[in-house]
Design a protein around this nucleic acid. Structure first.
Lengths: 344, 344
DNA sequence: GTGAAAGCGCTAACAA
DNA sequence: TTGTTAGCGCTTTCAC
C-alpha cells in the first residue's frame, strides 16, 4: 500500500523541478508542449491525483463552495441544491451543504465554519429568524464571493455580493391574468403575512393584475391565513359560505399546500372545480400533478435558480484571463403551469 | 484587513511554542491546566480559527464526509441527506454532497474525487447502473470507512465497510397484515421488476403475510407495472374490470405514486375507497397526506437512515480513546402509517 | 509539561 | 523555458 504519487515524485522521475510539473499540470503557457506531454503521460501512469488540501493551504483558498439553506427538506431547497451541485460539479467545484435550521445563530456559526474552511465562495438562502447581518461583514470584507438566493438581504451591497431571486410579482400577475381569461370575476387570494417579501410581491401582483383588467379588488377576498392545508381549508370554508354574489369564482393561493386544502373543502361543500371556482397555487410542487383536478400553479425554476447562483458566483471569482466583476442581481422569470383546476 | 490568527501567532504572543498551543487547543492531557486556560483565553480574544486545510494536509485526512447519491431530487434522498447533514454537523464533520446521476461512470469519478480530497469517510447509495465494484477497491484498501445506505452492494465486505438499509420485507408484511385485519381477502400487489432488491423483498413480504393468514396468493393479483401514476392507473384499470369474485378488495402498491394512480382510477370507475377497495402504498411521501382519502403507507425512516449511517461510519473511525470497529450492517424497522385509504 | 525540528504537497515570486 | 527558494498552518516525533 504505497503512498500516492505527488508532484515531487513526478519531478524526481522526470528529472524536472516541482514547479515545472506544477505548471505543466496547470497547462501554463510557458511550459514547452514536449514537457507537458511527458508530465501528463507519467501523471497518468502513476495515477497522480492532485492534493486539494495542499493546494488550498498554499493558495489560502479551497475549491469548495459553501451552501447554506434553512433546511434540506421539502420540495424547493432540494431542487435548488440539485441545480447548485450540478453546475458546481461541472465547473470543478465541490459543494459543502449546511443547514441553518431557520436559526440566525446557527447561520452565523456556519458562516464562520465556511470562512474557516476558506471556501471559494458562499451561496446562501437566509434563515427566517435572521434580523441582523453583522456576520456577513467578514465575508464581504475578506472578498469571498457571496450569492444570496431566494431569500435575500435587501440593501446588503458589495463588490463581491449579488443575488438570484424569482419574480414573484410577475408570477402572481400571470396566474391572476390567466384566471381572468378563464372568466373569473371575483378572485380571492390566500396569503401569508405581508411583511414577508414573497407574499407582499405576490399580493401586489394579484392586485395589479385585477386592476389592469378593470376589476376592483375586494379586500374581503384577501384571506390572511396560515399557508398550510388546514389554513387553506379554513379560508376556503369562510369564503364559500358567503352569498352567491359575494362568493369568489376563482382563488389564487400564495402556495400550493393551501390551494390543495382549499380545493378539498370546495369539493366537499359541493362546488365543482374549476366550473364553480377555479383554483391556482404557487410553486409547482410535485403533488400539484396528483390532485383531482390537477392544480394550476407557478413554476419557480428551482434548478435554474441554483445553476444561475453558481454562475453568478463564478463571475466574482478571479481566474486566469478574467477579472472578477460584480454581476447585478438576477431576477428569474417564473413559468405559469396551467392544469385542470383552472381551465374551463 | 489583517491576517487571521494562526497557532504561530498565539505562540509568539504567549511566549510558548507552537506545539504547546496545538496540544492545548486539542485538550491534550499533558499540558497544564493553567497553560490551557491562557491559550484558550487568547484564542478567543484573537478569534482564532483552526485551519482545516493545514490540519488535513498534515494528517493526511480531512474532516469532511463524502456523500454520493444518485440524485438530490424527489422525496427520499433529500430526507436522508437531511439526516446525514444534521448528524455529521453535530459530530463536527463537514459534508460534501455529490450526485452520480444514476451513472456508474460518474460514480467512479466521484469516488476518485473524494479519495483525492482525502475525506474521512464515504456514505454511498448505489447508482442503479453500477454493475462492477472495482472502484470501491481503492476505498476498501486505503481503509477509508465506507457506509452503503439504502442501495447496497451485496457481499462487498471489509473491515471498513458496512451498510444501513430498510427492512422492506417487514414493511410489506405489516401493510398486508393490516389490510387483512381490515377485512380484505383478495389483495393485489403492484410491483416493479423483481430483480430489484426492494421489490423482491416487498413482494416476498406480501406473499408471506398472505400465507401466514391462510390466504392463498393468486398470481393474477400481482401486477408488474411501471411504478408511476400512469402505471398504477393502468394496473388498477385491468384489475377492477375483472368480475366481482375475482376483483381485488385491497391493493398494496410497492410505491406511493402508483398507489395514487390506482386510487384515482378506482374512484373514477365508481368504486369507493376504502369500502370497495382498500389501498396502501410504500414510502410515506409528502403527497400521501393530501390525497382523498389520505393514503395508508409505510414510513422508511429516511432521516433516521441518514443519521444511523453517520453513526456507523464514526464507529469505523479511529479517535482518541476508541479503537475502530466494524459494525454489522444495520437494518431499520419501517413504520406502518395507517390513513383513511385503508381504514374501514 | 514544554520546546525544537521536520515536513505534509503544493505554488508563486524571483532568478537564471 | 526551467529551477531555486520559501512558506502556507498545522501536527508529531523526539529530546529535555
Amino acid at each position: 500500500m504505497n503512498r500516492r504519487a505527488s508532484i515531487t515524485d513526478l519531478a524526481k522521475a522526470l528529472g524536472l523541478s516541482a514547479s515545472t510539473i506544477s505548471r505543466a499540470l496547470a497547462d501554463h503557457h510557458d511550459v514547452s508542449e514536449a514537457t507537458k506531454a511527458r508530465v501528463r503521460q507519467l501523471a497518468k501512469e502513476l495515477h497522480y491525483q492532485p492534493n486539494p488540501l495542499a493546494a488550498g493551504l498554499r493558495r489560502g483558498r479551497s475549491n469548495t463552495l459553501g451552501v447554506i439553506v434553512p433546511h434540506i427538506t421539502g420540495y424547493f431547497f432540494p431542487e435548488v441544491i440539485h441545480g447548485i451541485a450540478s453546475e458546481a460539479s461541472e465547473a470543478g467545484f465541490n459543494v459543502m451543504i449546511c443547514q441553518s435550521n431557520e436559526d440566525a445563530q446557527q447561520e452565523r456559526q456556519i458562516i464562520e465554519l465556511l470562512m474557516g474552511a476558506q471556501v471559494a465562495g458562499i451561496l446562501l438562502s437566509l434563515s427566517d429568524t435572521t434580523t441582523d447581518f453583522e456576520h456577513f461583514e467578514a465575508v464581504r470584507q475578506q472578498g469571498v464571493p457571496l450569492v444570496f438566493f431566494d431569500r435575500v438581504v435587501q440593501g446588503f451591497k458589495g463588490t463581491n455580493v449579488t443575488s438570484v431571486t424569482l419574480n414573484d410579482y410577475l408570477g402572481a400577475y400571470q396566474v391572476v391574468e390567466h384566471l381572468i381569461a378563464q372568466g373569473c370575476r371575483r378572485i380571492a387570494h390566500f396569503t401569508g403575512p405581508l411583511h414577508v417579501n414573497i407574499h407582499k410581491n405576490r399580493h401586489q401582483g394579484y392586485l395589479d393584475a385585477l386592476a389592469a383588467h378593470g376589476l376592483t379588488p375586494d379586500p374581503r377576498l384577501t384571506a390572511f391565513c396560515e399557508l398550510s392545508q388546514q389554513g387553506g381549508a379554513a379560508a376556503m370554508r369562510g369564503l364559500m359560505r358567503l352569498s352567491a354574489t359575494r362568493r369568489p369564482d376563482g382563488v389564487f393561493s400564495s402556495n400550493d399546500l393551501a390551494a390543495v386544502g382549499g380545493m378539498q373543502v370546495a369539493k366537499k361543500l359541493g362546488f365543482r372545480v374549476p366550473e364553480d371556482v377555479a383554483i391556482a397555487g404557487f410553486s409547482n410542487e410535485v403533488f400539484t400533478q396528483l390532485t383531482e383536478p390537477a392544480l394550476t400553479t407557478v413554476d419557480q425554476r428551482c434548478e435554474q435558480m441554483g445553476r444561475t447562483a453558481v454562475q453568478q458566483l463564478q463571475k466574482m471569482l478571479p481566474s486566469p484571463g478574467h477579472t472578477p466583476a460584480t454581476p447585478r442581481g438576477i431576477v428569474l422569470k417564473p413559468k405559469l403551469v396551467v392544469r385542470d383546476s383552472s381551465q374551463r
